[in-house]
Design a protein around this nucleic acid. Structure first.
Lengths: 350, 350
DNA sequence: AATATATATAAAACCGGTTTCATAAATTGT
DNA sequence: ACAATTTATGAAACCGGTTTTATATATATT
């Protein structure tokens, strides 16, 4: 006795309208709570929807409305605890606006970064937040084609200089200043031979940090010595390796500045293993204020760059644009804050 | 001289077809490399697409094909490093199949878990992997309505007992056995008063771990003493708190088993602060083998539960189902592996 | 040369919603 | 009591692709 039409498919709005004896448009208005609907009609429709276990089809809806209800956050690194607070902050804001956040890990690969941009071309999401992105010409070409609000967030400031024409908003931290503060602090403690562990030399973000180190030395009348600088990547093991190298120098540095906390953490491990006391024998400063180092002893001095704040601001910028706010792209630069702890509290007297 | 039709919109397949002088269907076939197309025609169409900067609309495509190209991974916890390897493994498999992975953090909130399920009802993605999920009736009701392949992955095994009717696949680790191995190991070292730091008492996952502890004691002819057991949550600070409590007991335990490494890490900190030597004065075992603890001294014994392997298997199960593999739902249970390190190498003799 | 088959394309239906427009019924104003 | 307005709904167009069907042409087969 069953109608042939029931092919075991999930019900559509047409099934609802047929069973309820109304038009599809009326069902749609009920669904979205828009326009005029008699209470009686609404209830009838709602009953049918429940009976048939109706679920609206997202793709169909998106096609017409051009909205997805998603904000995409692209993060370069799965295992960098640095981003956790930022992710949380973005998620909070996004939820608060009734959207969902989805995350895409690029692992810093150009191929994946481009892929994210292409997903956005195809309107996978209504907004995009890119964190610590590369900035090759290929990237910019794809970025130019993105139609949704886009916020670039970076722990790096240098790249947003001349390009006034850039259509995206930007929120970042002045990391050069951060490392400048850290290095300057070491100088004030009496250090003049200060090692530097730099991260990826070829990444702008790390060049910017290095600039802070160099400027601080120069402003203090000290020379920048190549043999005191160790480049490789930003992982803990490299911090360890770098510290061993720095310890092998003669005379060896009395202080070390690391481009991030992971490196500092590795350095600390090397110092311990070689019975070099921190801060008595050598001072140490990192950057990022990540959770993982907070448990170490001695506590490592670091530079706080307010990841949560960056995430929050970036997300809010996306929604401002989504809500039609026009105008020139905004560039928001937050100030870093030096946190002095045990690892750099030894005054050097000679 | 411009046609009125050009309303500054992004070009559609109709624009391409009009400019190229072919039908939309032909453009579509070019786009998807399907069916017959004369080389000449294809080239003409591709030129036009490039000229007009054509980008296909994802929603329209999904509407017809019922595919999104996305696999969703739902993770309960932003700041638990435990999941990092699993995320990576899933991402690798997903990419390998030409799909994209998107991540949704539920923060363990029921509201968000339900939200994920509802997104899947609406076909946000082609497949779903749920990790360490709650299992209330509300959840099951929503899970029943999901139409795409669904793999549940859990670090917990107990919940997959009787429900033969469950339509989803499952991959997990026998955590009860893991903690059993850890506890048994401590007993073999000569310990008979063993403290336990349990995590969330109300979560099944932690009850299962606790079961391992209890069974090991009972099998060894020891009594399970309530005063040796500390429940709260699974964070580092709670491990610290719990350890302090356990140290205050008289006589105090000679060994501690923690339900995860974060707790063990906190406990270690408390021991250090109180000059209790590990393992000479007290032995310590954790579970999960997370990265964060690998740098600590002494190295903490732990139980490895192969997160990457779980992720890989879960993702591959999704694709097997997507590729039409039918049949009863699979339940895959991996074996945990005890890793003995410094923190539990002290043989107790009395 | 006639027929069968492979190649190539257009036209139209379709996916499942939303939105506009027209129209009918109920309510309000005078 | 009649016009103006508000409320309520259906019909149809639309979003931008894919897929099926029909048809025309080129090539192969007998």
């Amino acid at each position: 006795m069953q109608k042939d039409k029931n092919k075991n498919k999930t019900p559509t709005i047409y099934d609802i309208s047929r069973v309820a004896g109304v038009s599809p448009g009326t069902v749609s208005r009920t669904l979205n709570n828009i326009g005029y609907i008699k209470n009686e009609t609404r209830e009838k429709i709602e009953t049918v929807m429940k009976d048939l276990k109706y679920i609206p089809n997202r793709a169909a809806r998106s096609l017409k409305t051009k909205k997805t209800g998603l904000i995409m956050l692209a993060i370069p690194d799965t295992d960098n605890p640095f981003y956790v607070d930022m992710i949380k902050a973005v998620q909070d804001v996004v939820k608060h606006h009734g959207y969902s956040m989805i995350l895409y890990y690029t692992e810093g690969k150009k191929e994946d970064e481009i892929h994210v941009l292409k997903m956005l071309h195809e309107r996978y999401a209504d907004g995009l937040i890119l964190v610590n992105f590369s900035f090759t010409k290929d990237h910019l070409k794809e970025i130019d084609r993105i139609l949704c609000p886009l916020v670039l967030s970076s722990i790096c400031v240098s790249k947003i200089g001349g390009r006034e024409e850039d259509k995206f908003d930007y929120v970042g931290v002045d990391t050069k200043k951060g490392i400048y503060l850290a290095t300057r602090h070491l100088v004030k403690q009496g250090h003049s031979v200060i090692g530097y562990i730099g991260g990826y030399q070829e990444l702008e973000a790390f060049q910017e940090r290095f600039d802070g180190y160099r400027s601080a030395l120069i402003d203090s009348g000290l020379t920048v010595r190549d043999d005191l600088i160790f480049w490789k990547d930003y992982h803990e093991s490299t911090g360890y390796e770098a510290a061993k190298y720095l310890l092998s120098l003669n005379p060896r540095p009395t202080a070390v500045c690391a481009a991030n906390d992971m490196l500092a953490m590795g350095a600390l491990r090397a110092f311990e293993e070689n019975s070099v006391r921190v801060p008595e024998d050598i001072s140490l400063v990192g950057m990022d204020n990540i959770d993982a180092v907070k448990r170490l002893k001695p506590k490592i001095s670091t530079v706080c760059i307010a990841q949560a704040e960056i995430g929050r601001i970036a997300a809010e910028l996306v929604f401002k644009r989504l809500n039609g706010e026009e105008g020139q792209s905004r560039k928001i630069i937050l100030e870093p804050r030096l946190i002095v702890q045990e690892s750099s509290t030894h005054l050097l007297v000679n």
